[in-house]
Each structure stands twice: as C-alpha cells, then as structure tokens.
Amino acid sequence: MYVGVDEAGKGPVLGPMVAAAVRADPDDLPPDVDDSKRVAPDRREAIAATLRDRDDVAVAVAYVEPDEIDAPDTDMNTLTVRGQARAVRAVAAAGDRVVADAGDTSEARFARRLDDCITSLDRTDAVPGVAVEAAHGADEDDPLVGAASVVAKVARDASVAAIDAAYPAYGGVGSGYPSDPTTREFLRAYVADHGDVPDCARRSWSTCTDVLAAAEQSALDDF
C-alpha cells in the first residue's frame, strides 16, 4: 500500500495551511482524480467525499494554524514538513511507500526531513519503516498525491468559508490570498474597527504589517 500527501494554503494571509494524506490502492481512486488546481470546485468536493466514504481508502487532514505559522522559530518549509507528516502519521502503516509533493527546492532534502518527522521514535505516533520520496509536480504526476491535493484544497476552502461566516459584518473575506482585493479590504476594515488584525490572520505576513502601518499612519494624520 502507499500514501500520497500534499498541502494547500501556503501563501494566504488568512486561515490555516492544510495538509492531507490519502492511503489507497491507486486503482481504487476516482478515474478523474488530478492536481486540485486542474479540477473544478464542485468535482473536487465530490472526489473528496467519495474518498472519505470508501472503506478501502484512508484519508487524514492536518491543520497548521496561523499562530503556528507566525512562530518566530520556524519557516514555511519546516511547517510544510510538519503538516504533511501529521497527516501521513494518521494513516500510514509500517512498510508503506509515501509519495509527497516536494515543498522545498531540493526534493531529496524534503524527503529526508519528512521521513525523519514521520519515523522519529521520539514521537508516540511515529510510523517506522516507511519509504518516503518527494517530487516537484507530484500532485500532477501521481494519482495518490493528486487525491491528497484535492482533499487538502477542499478542507482549506471549508476553513475559509468558516472564517467568512465568522465575520458577517464585513461583507466577505475573499479567498484569503494577499492579492485578493476583498481580502485586503476585510483586513483594512477590521483593523480600522479593532486596532489589530483578526485571529484568523497570519500577522507575520507583510500584508498584515502593511495594513497595520497604514492604519497607524492614518491615525497620526487625523491627530
């Protein structure tokens, strides 16, 4: 048996990064499973639901929340390893082959770090004896990694929908990405009302720093 693992939501300023792992025989996957970016949203949700409903497929999701992302002693590559490893440890068994979408410029380094995080005997949930490999573009080339990318994207979208519902007074939070005008307007309006970014925001992102600086400057100008 082997496990595919991928993540969604590295770049947004709002919400968690989400990693997902899928353990299955590739023949048991829906025939149109693919990299989540190449699958329509409705079909992504249908694929994710099918995977979760099947007894011969194991699915796990792990969340890396904004407070963990903002920690000063970490970086995005480490967070990606950590999130992917959490998801893999929830479904993998000794002897499994693990294929990951590489979250580092070096595929070998990412595979080595992921292997260490999955198999470390310092952890009570360690899974020894797995064989880990990583490749750029694995979400396009490997069906199980594609399946994991779909599950991660659906879970990430659900997190954004929950954030949106939590702030009904602001007319929507958008996609959560810094380039989204709706997201930026939500942050500007929230900071204007509360003097700080919301808990769902990654305050270490430059988007938040810029919004807070602009609000401070505006307050000085009005003084």
Rank of each mutant, 00 (worst) to 15 (best):
V5D: 07
A8H: 04
A8C: 15
K10P: 08
G11R: 03
P12I: 03
P12D: 01
V13K: 07
G15K: 01
V18F: 10
A20G: 07
D27A: 11
D27L: 09
P31F: 04
D32C: 15
K37S: 11
D42R: 05
L51I: 14
D53M: 14
R54P: 13
D56C: 13
V57F: 00
A58H: 02
D67A: 05
D67C: 03
I69R: 00
D70E: 04
A71D: 11
P72V: 06
N77T: 12
L79D: 08
G83Y: 00
R86A: 03
R86K: 04
V88M: 11
V91D: 02
A93Y: 01
A102G: 08
G103R: 01
T105P: 14
A108H: 15
A108G: 15
F110C: 10
R112W: 02
D116S: 11
C117S: 12
I118T: 01
T119G: 09
D122H: 05
D122Y: 04
V127T: 01
G129L: 14
A131V: 13
V132K: 01
A134Y: 01
A135P: 11
A138Q: 02
D141I: 08
A148Q: 04
S149T: 11
V150C: 13
A161Y: 11
Y167D: 01
G172D: 12
G176F: 06
G176E: 05
G176H: 04
Y177I: 10
P178L: 02
D180C: 05
T182D: 15
T183M: 13
T183C: 10
F186S: 09
L187W: 02
R188W: 01
A192H: 01
D193V: 15
H194L: 04
D196L: 13
W205H: 13
S206Y: 06
C208V: 12
T209K: 11
T209I: 14
V211C: 10
Q217Y: 08
F223G: 10
